[in-house]
Design a protein around this nucleic acid. Structure first.
Length: 682
DNA sequence: CCGGGGTGGT
DNA sequence: ACCACCC
């Protein structure tokens, strides 16, 4: 990037950051702030100042999404599980000591009543994630995603605009916390601008909460690193503004170098080898010495970061650069199994790719071998005739891609070599926008939508009435409890440190000592090596989720099923609708999943008991012994029957397309009957 | 390092 | 193709 940027206003912003070499690094970080020297060619009276950067970080995002999808989970300690790992959990669970990336066994030990939900299918999270980004983009186009649950935003221009509007004697104030309780000095331009930024952040958080039902934290600062680091100061659902004078403090109070975004595991190791473990160590380390280890560019960046200096602009993310799907497992060691996995992955991928509306130019296959920490990959171009088939939704696409992927696989593994894989991943990249030329470079955002409709990058897991309707619980959850007893199993010191409303939620979550609903523990009649160490119930998450997943999956595996139907069906029910359906509710049956159930179910630890929405006339034991394929097919068909029975019509979602092969319902019906007969009705 | 994703640099 | 980084 060039040193000089010119923005629309005619200002010339020039970075002037030769400060690092100065005497005290700490002072440097303060004085260098975000100083910009403005040379103007327009009428203006003031020197332009620093950028105002916001960082948004949703609170335990996956857990929030699951609590929206199934509000019954709201007042329960909840963990989201992938394979045998609790990847995240809500705050109730955290109060019991459950943490991110804890094993299911450990988590259950900390919190026996922990409710677990499978989170291996990322579609719902991806969808909510993009909804958040899109909402932010509605206010300012400079939005950069970081993972699914964080966004940066450069609101400098909005701040500038608002500043101009304010009357002369306007009283500036900061919304939310100020880091270190530093006092706002309204005589300082930077302070005023940050104060305005804090109000923008508050508005945006409110919008996200009102429109999407999601809470999160925000950090307001003058650079991305600082905004990010400061946003975590007050944790759930709060925001913090960093005034530049507190920069050194923020940086030096970071636990270790690993806390600085940009310093990963390997960099931290190398720094440690140089004797550097704290942020201050790095700040004080001579740049020249750093350059010997890392080269000039990286050294400079690291040094900057240690001072909270981050010149990286907020880069609008736009639509994703790649779309991938992966699966990990204990063992895949023959080509047939590989073929199966690749088929599964591509089923989901092709559908996602189609909904995206772009055409992938490249496919990549990645594997991880047993005991290998490294991954290996091979990639190749996708012949454009195949790419077009994906784009147009042709059912042939998948088979062609599977054989392409298998060629890549052989290139990786060799001909008749033995192998033991623990992961396979397929990735589409080099995504090309097609058509819709008027929309120009952002065309990919909008391709394939009906003109008035913005893109559908995501699918349909959102509650239907999308405006301000109430799915989530209001802010005050339970006012009635004044001095709550501390729930059993909770560390009292931890408990007291929790925010008030969490404490209230926690206590209100103490089991009413009545009948164990479907959410309660179930015994398991353990089989082989019980990896989880103990029985646990994974919340079915259905009825809603099974509806969604089964039908979704089915649409991909069934050449005969027009996927348009699928979108219509699964976009229909809202979570509440499903809940109060009063349906004979398909008893919640549990069975050992070793034979597989829904997507990915077959790879869960053997000892785990799984709760499903289950047809009443089917013997679970018999069912569990069926091949996974058959189980899956059965489920989707059973679901489909239920859905068809109760859903009159529906609209919306996804790319609309010509309903060519419209009715294969007949075929489906037949298959269903064929499958159901395995279970001898009545 | 686990998980299922993503990004960018060489 | 791999490496680093992020969540």
């Amino acid at each position: 990037m060039s040193l000089v940027n010119e923005d629309e206003s005619g200002w010339v912003y020039q970075s002037e950051d030769t400060v690092q070499t100065e005497t005290s690094p700490v002072n440097a970080s303060i004085s260098s702030k975000c100083r910009v020297s403005g040379t103007l060619n327009k009428t203006s009276t003031q020197a332009p100042v620093c950028r105002i950067i916001l960082h948004f970080d949703l609170d335990c995002f996956y857990a929030q999404v699951e609590m929206i999808r199934n509000p019954e989970l709201r007042n329960k300690p909840l963990g989201i599980v992938q394979k045998y790992i609790v990847v995240t959990c809500n705050y109730l669970a955290r109060a019991y000591g459950v943490t991110k990336l804890m094993s299911v066994a450990d988590a259950k030990e900390k919190c026996p009543q922990l409710v677990l939900v499978y989170g291996e299918d990322l579609d719902p999270y991806r969808e909510f994630s993009y909804k958040v980004t899109e909402l932010l983009e509605g206010h300012c186009l400079l939005v950069e995603r970081l993972g699914f649950d964080e966004n940066f935003m450069d609101v400098t221009d909005i701040v500038d605009a608002k500043m101009k509007q304010e009357p002369e004697g306007f009283e500036f104030s900061v919304n939310g916390h100020i880091y270190n309780q530093h006092t706002l000095d309204t005589k300082l331009e930077d302070h005023r601008r940050l104060a305005v930024g804090s109000h923008i952040a508050a508005e945006l958080r409110e919008a996200v909460r009102n429109k999407l039902g999601l809470t999160g934290c925000a950090g307001i600062a003058t650079s991305k690193v600082l905004a990010k680091l400061v946003s975590g100061t007050f944790k759930p659902n709060q925001q913090t503004t960093l005034l530049p004078e507190s920069t050194a403090d923020l940086m030096s109070t970071q636990g270790g170098l690993r806390k600085v975004p940009g310093v990963g595991r390997s960099t931290a190791q190398r720094l440690k080898a140089l004797g550097l473990t704290s942020v201050k160590d790095l700040q004080c380390f001579p740049l020249a010495s750093l350059e010997k280890e890392f080269g000039a560019a990286v050294a400079q960046r690291l040094h900057d970061l240690s001072l909270g200096i981050d010149k990286a602009p907020v880069k609008p993310s736009g639509p994703p650069q790649s779309i991938s799907d992966e699966d990990s497992f204990k063992k895949v060691s023959n080509e047939t199994e590989v073929l199966e996995k690749v088929h599964e992955l591509l089923s989901s991928l092709v559908e996602r790719m189609y909904k995206d509306g772009r055409q992938p130019g490249t496919i990549r296959l990645t594997v991880r071998r047993l005991l290998a920490t490294k991954r290996e990959s091979r990639q190749c171009p996708i012949p454009s005739h195949i790419g077009k088939k994906i784009f147009s939704g042709s059912q042939d696409a998948k088979a062609l891609l599977v054989s392409l992927a298998m060629k890549l696989f052989r290139k990786l593994i060799g001909q008749n070599t033995t192998f033991h894989l623990t992961l396979i991943s397929v990735c589409f990249c080099n995504l090309q926008s097609r058509g819709s030329t008027k929309l120009g470079s952002i065309g990919s955002f909008f391709t394939h939508q009906s003109p008035e409709k913005p893109v559908c990058r995501a699918q349909s897991h959102l509650p239907q009435a999308d405006s301000d309707t109430t799915l989530w619980t209001p802010e005050v959850v339970c006012d009635t409890v004044k001095t709550p007893p501390i729930p059993p199993g909770v560390d009292p010191s931890v408990f007291r440190q929790l925010p008030d409303y969490i404490q209230r939620e926690l206590t209100s979550a103490i089991p009413p000592a009545t009948s164990p609903g479907p959410l309660q523990q179930k015994e398991h009649t353990g089989t082989a090596q019980d990896q989880a160490g103990q029985a646990c119930t994974i919340q079915n998450h259905p009825p809603l989720q099974m509806d969604l997943e089964c039908e979704f999956e089915d649409s991909l595996t069934h050449p005969t099923w027009n996927s348009k139907d699928v979108r219509n069906i699964h976009s229909q029910p809202t979570p509440q609708m499903v809940n109060d359906e009063g349906e004979p509710s398909g008893l919640h049956c549990s069975f050992h999943d070793s034979a597989g159930g829904g997507k990915h179910m077959d790879r869960i630890m053997p000892g785990m008991t799984t709760t499903f929405d289950f047809p009443p006339n089917v013997d679970p034991t018999v069912f569990s012994e069926l091949p996974a394929e058959v189980q899956r097919e059965f489920f989707s068909e059973w679901r489909q029957q239920k859905s068809v029975a109760k859903i009159p019509s529906a609209k919306k979602q996804g790319r609309s397309r010509p309903s060519k092969e419209a009715n294969s319902s007949a075929a489906k019906g037949k298959q269903t009957n064929n499958l159901l007969k395995y279970f001898k009705p009545r």
